[in-house]
Design a protein around this nucleic acid. Structure first.
Length: 486
DNA sequence: GCCCGCATAAACAGAT
DNA sequence: CATCTGTTTATGCGGG
């Protein structure tokens, strides 16, 4: 870590422009020559994914294998001709660029910009959006034996979040505090043949692993959120302090080394992706209001792959349940409030970021967030083609099916790591809480369904966005011609 | 205003 | 003895 880190993947990409490093929000358009091709390929994306899902299921591929599958798909998708344009405008609508300037490909955007996006988030002097619980969880999950001494947990955090290198040392206290207080973590008897010095090894309590995953799911991955992005007063330089992949990004070493463990719960990552500032969902009109600049491609990179995973299951459910066909889908609202940079708890509630859909509980809200596709303060309708319609219909159907059976307890829910989420009072002494800890209620099928639905809606949003890219491109070209005429 | 989740600080004890 | 580790308590903040 530190300034001697190798350049990010993006920097190695020849065609990746300065978009990511500038923290801007480049609208994406299709290359002139590739417009038709990209449109066609985009239209086939969901079908390809479906085939991949079927294959994955047929062959009982591991989640890691499926990650490779989806990665290939993404690569193909990124070659479909969709190209990201350089930012036409900065968040203030100034510094217009010529559309004919060198445009980084979507692939670059997907792979490189996402990388750099995370560089911005984690490499800069910004607190990571993850809670300590999540950080510890990721650290332990990243360990070969799924257990780490506290010292190595420190090391992992430092390695992946250089912010802490310069942060006050209190964070280590917080780590220890979390390890002790959070029953999701438990000490493991040291292997006598292993001398690790002081202390014990820490591992994830399988009983509560789900809780941690839920917590991760509720953590927004929004590297370009205004709260995380480089302050506007800072020069738009690419931070060089971080070269690792985001832990929740599908290309992360965490995933690779971990055998795709976290991908076994891909919907969580989906929600993370969705909780990139919702503007990340290809704002159709891309009003330059996102001061931090949310890279659409970043959203894709961190979202689309896991979306595929969940889409796989969603599709099966959908196909087995039939469909109805709403012709339009109105994305929910989203507020513009910035992420508070003060704490790690940036994702306490999705409703803080986006207007909740009426009558929806927390999990429903997640779905609502996932289908964010616009930053406009007013609802807008996005025309959907048949693909999107089907996907959205499926998702809506699944979601409604879930809602019928899930009108029970709301509240903090699964993301809560403290004992209260399990009905164990936090006010009890730790030991008592641990003693009183009861088995975690199994995850309901309804929740699975709802989250799958959310993923499907998300995918529908992708398609919608792709369509809007097309529209936007056409519009931009038209405007460009007019400008030339004048 | 209360509760919850989280971060942070601090005190303290035990282990190395 | 110093440092590290682990536990516990207290406090503050933001949000529901």
């Amino acid at each position: 870590m530190g300034p001697t880190m190798p350049p990010s993947k993006k920097a190695q990409s020849p065609s990746s422009g300065a978009s990511a490093s500038q923290g801007m929000s480049p609208p994406y358009r299709q290359g002139d020559a590739a417009t038709a091709a990209s449109e066609a390929e985009a239209a086939d994306l969901s079908l390809s994914l479906s085939a991949s899902f079927s294959k994955a299921e047929d062959e009982e591929l591991t989640s890691l294998s499926w990650l490779h599958e989806s990665t290939d798909l993404l690569n193909s998708f990124s070659h479909s001709g969709l190209r990201s344009v350089s930012p036409l405008q900065d968040p203030d609508g100034q510094h217009s660029r010529s559309p004919s300037s060198s445009s980084p490909s979507l692939e670059d955007a997907l792979l490189g910009d996402a990388h750099s996006a995370y560089d911005l988030a984690a490499g800069a002097n910004r607190k990571p959006p993850y809670s300590f619980s999540c950080l510890i969880f990721m650290a332990i999950e990243d360990a070969p034996n799924k257990r780490l001494p506290v010292k190595d947990i420190y090391g992992w955090i430092l390695e992946h979040f250089p912010y802490f290198a310069s942060a006050p040392t209190g964070w280590k206290n917080s780590v220890r505090h979390n390890l002790s207080l959070n029953k999701c973590f438990k000490k493991v008897d040291k292997d006598r043949s292993q001398s690790i010095g002081k202390g014990s090894l820490w591992s994830i309590d399988p009983e509560y692993r789900h809780n941690l995953i839920q917590a991760l799911k509720k953590t927004p991955y929004h590297p370009y959120s205004p709260g995380l992005a480089t302050p506007s007063t800072s020069p738009p330089t690419l931070p060089q302090t971080f070269h690792h992949s985001p832990p929740l990004w599908s290309g992360s070493p965490l995933f690779r080394k971990n055998g795709g463990v976290l991908l076994q719960v891909p919907r969580g990552v989906i929600q993370n992706g969705a909780r990139i500032r919702s503007q990340a969902l290809f704002p159709p009109n891309a009003e330059p209001r996102w001061s931090g600049g949310v890279q659409r491609a970043t959203w894709l990179a961190v979202t689309l792959s896991p979306v595929l995973a969940s889409y796989r299951s969603s599709l099966g459910d959908y196909l087995s349940r039939g469909q109805d066909s709403p012709s339009r889908y109105s994305p929910p609202l989203c507020s513009e409030d910035l992420q508070d940079d003060h704490t790690y708890s940036t994702a306490k509630s999705p409703s803080r970021l986006c207007s909740p859909s009426s009558g929806m509980d927390d999990d429903d809200d997640i779905i609502a967030v996932e289908i964010q596709s616009d930053v406009k303060p007013e609802p807008r309708e996005i025309p959907l083609d048949s693909h999107i319609t089907s996907a959205a219909a499926a998702a809506n159907y699944i979601s409604q099916q879930s809602l019928r059976g899930q009108r029970r307890s709301s509240g903090p829910g699964a993301g809560t790591l403290a004992g209260s989420s399990l009905g164990i009072s936090d006010t009890l002494p730790l030991k008592k809480r641990r003693a009183a800890a009861v088995e975690k209620p199994p995850e309901s099928d309804d929740e699975e369904m709802k989250e799958a639905a959310g993923s499907l809606l998300h995918l529908a949003g992708v398609r919608a966005c792709l369509n809007n890219i097309t529209n936007r491109t056409a519009k931009g070209q038209k405007e460009q011609k007019e400008a030339l005429r004048n």
